[in-house]
């Protein structure tokens, strides 16, 4: 392995959290401004990729909330589940509900968008990390 820059070693983990925070922000504001689950997911993938390139694939993989495939699967599952309340209350599947229990607008549509975010992050980060792993093994 090539010797790494100490500066990068310090900065990139910070960048990772910063990017993730940006991703969450993009995700949350997406309903009313440019953004949303897809873009947020891609930003998170970029964060994971940056971390993996600098600190190695194992580190980036460990920082994921779940392994890539379960992460993607949980995203799909979350989106799937977010439509169930409508189904059980006799409305068409995936019709969303809004409520403001704690002075914050909460909705099932946020769960759906969170699912999109997790699915994109998990799936694409899975590709990046696995390819990088193959790369590192060969190096």
């Amino acid at each position: 392995m090539t010797p790494r820059s100490v500066l990068l070693d310090r900065i990139v983990p910070m960048l990772y959290w910063l990017l993730l925070a940006a991703a969450v922000w993009i995700l949350l504001r997406g309903h009313n401004a440019p953004g949303g689950g897809f873009i947020a997911g891609l930003v998170a993938v970029a964060a994971s990729a940056a971390l993996a390139i600098v600190l190695g694939e194992r580190v980036a993989r460990a920082r994921l909330p779940l392994a890539p495939l379960p992460l993607a699967a949980s995203g799909v599952l979350l989106a799937l589940v977010s439509g169930l309340p409508a189904l059980f209350s006799g409305h068409p599947y995936l019709m969303h509900f809004w409520g403001a229990p704690l002075e914050v607008k909460l909705s099932t549509v946020m769960l759906f968008d969170l699912g999109v975010f997790l699915a994109v992050w998990g799936a694409l980060a899975g590709f990046v990390l696995a390819l990088l792993a193959a790369w590192e093994e060969a190096a």
């Binding site: 949303g36 891609l42 799936a123």
Partner: peptide
């Protein structure tokens, strides 16, 4: 188009692999 870009990218990754 937004969803098409993301799906297209996922399939492109698959194609590369």
């Amino acid at each position: 188009v937004l969803t098409a870009i993301v799906i297209g990218f996922a399939l492109l990754c698959f194609g590369l692999v």
